[in-house]
Design a protein around this nucleic acid. Structure first.
Lengths: 237, 237
DNA sequence: AGCGCACTACGTACGGTGTACGTAACTACG
DNA sequence: CGTAGTTACGTACACCGTACGTAGTGCGCT
């Protein structure tokens, strides 16, 4: 009758250690690290309670002492890799600093390709997320704007970076690990798209694809996107 | 030895009807509609092959004649609701038109709250997505820019709208359907956040929360975000 | 006309999932 | 010191995606 109390709390609010029973064998950081290791190696779908428990070397159900629901495990994972954000002394040039933040976020998501999928569903302010946000706000000190506006800037930058990496990964993933060769794959897609476009129903799409015949410079796309976001918040003048 | 040929093709490339065997009992639209109905009522997690099949009134495995993998079912769903986009004759004012597009996207995601979760993982250009894109490009005809730039505009607008609705839904979802009362929930969160902030480690976060004491006007946040995106693409002057 | 094949339909079965629940060992607090 | 609250973990259940086999159906070819 231990009253596991499946109250849907925020996991960060529940203390990691309540000095009553036996010492917990693992820390939240341990568990998060194990889950991250699995996700990095085998993708997010490989992250199951059994799998993580096995990686830790404990029984499956023991995990539930630390993590009330799997969703919370996800939160732990996001927080863990958020800790990889390198924080620096703000330079005084908020645009340069935020640019650097954007690049770091992108690198982070490239390193942990499951991150974009999880970012959309996370509510809470995890410890590392707080540190990250505080750092962004510090970088934005030179910008004359309300904190509300600064938060909007950070949110918008994150949205753009996340979407960018999602697209990047989606196209990259598609070219890999298919029984078809890459050329055949793209050929099939081109054929389909070409067929649709050739109906004449989508003249502008046709023009767009004709225009972008060569390979797209994704790096340049990213830089432009970041620049545009920052421009939108720069004081007019 | 029917060679079900689980080739990872694009579902839109495979013809809906190959005039050989018995007539299919359902169309893709039927299936998509059933799945959408289920997702609207019970959330995305309620969408299972068995469930959708039951809703259609057929055996579970019959579904696999129409949809090779569940992921493709998702694509069908996204395409189906994309068809709800109302298209109009471009007004000549591209900013106004894109603003309207943004509002429509937001309404669509509010109506189908599972959409944001799926949007991140969809690669292909479904029929309705093509129509939608073509319409956006038509609205952008007055804007003097390359099609590449216009595509970037649409992508960015979508990213921002999606992220906005995700946040909106996340906060809305949290206040609902918990054994706790809403007041208690927010109290717990405030207590946690307040505790973190009170450590003094996050002075700017503290200031930000102090500043935004009142309820946030989400509508205004959305308008500002859209405006900023569009401003970023307006010709300098 | 009639054969054959590609297609539909669907039941069964397998390996996986999240997690509720019960039991046993353990430790800090009253 | 007892006892309450915690950790540890095995078992069990409902559900998932889907591979596979079988039976029936009707178009296309000879």
């Amino acid at each position: 009758m231990a009253g596991r109390a499946a109250r849907p709390e925020v996991i960060w609010a529940r203390p990691e250690r309540t000095g009553r029973g036996p010492k917990p064998a693992y820390t939240r950081a341990d568990i998060a690290a194990a889950a991250v290791r699995i996700a990095d190696a085998g993708g997010l779908d490989a992250v199951s309670m059994r799998h993580v428990a096995a990686e830790l070397g404990c029984g499956t159900m023991s995990l539930y002492n630390y993590v009330p629901r799997k969703e919370d495990l996800y939160e732990l994972m996001v927080d863990a890799v958020s800790g990889e954000h390198e924080l620096w002394e703000p330079s005084g040039d908020w645009r340069a600093d935020m640019r650097r933040v954007a690049h770091q976020s992108r690198d982070l998501m490239r390193r942990h390709t499951w991150l974009p999928r999880l970012m959309s569903g996370i509510y809470g302010f995890s410890p590392h997320a707080l540190r990250y946000l505080e750092h962004c706000l510090a970088c934005l000190d030179p910008l004359e704007a309300s904190y509300g506006t600064k938060m909007e800037l950070v949110a918008m930058l994150n949205a753009v970076v996340t979407m960018y990496v999602s697209n990047e990964l989606a196209t990259a993933e598609r070219t890999r690990s298919l029984p078809w060769s890459e050329e055949e794959e793209t050929a099939v897609r081109i054929a389909y798209l070409g067929g649709q476009v050739a109906t004449g129903a989508y003249p502008r799409m046709a023009a767009a694809f004709a225009e972008g015949a060569g390979p797209i410079d994704l790096e340049a796309v990213f830089e432009r996107a970041v620049t545009r976001v920052l421009d939108g918040f720069a004081p007019r003048g």
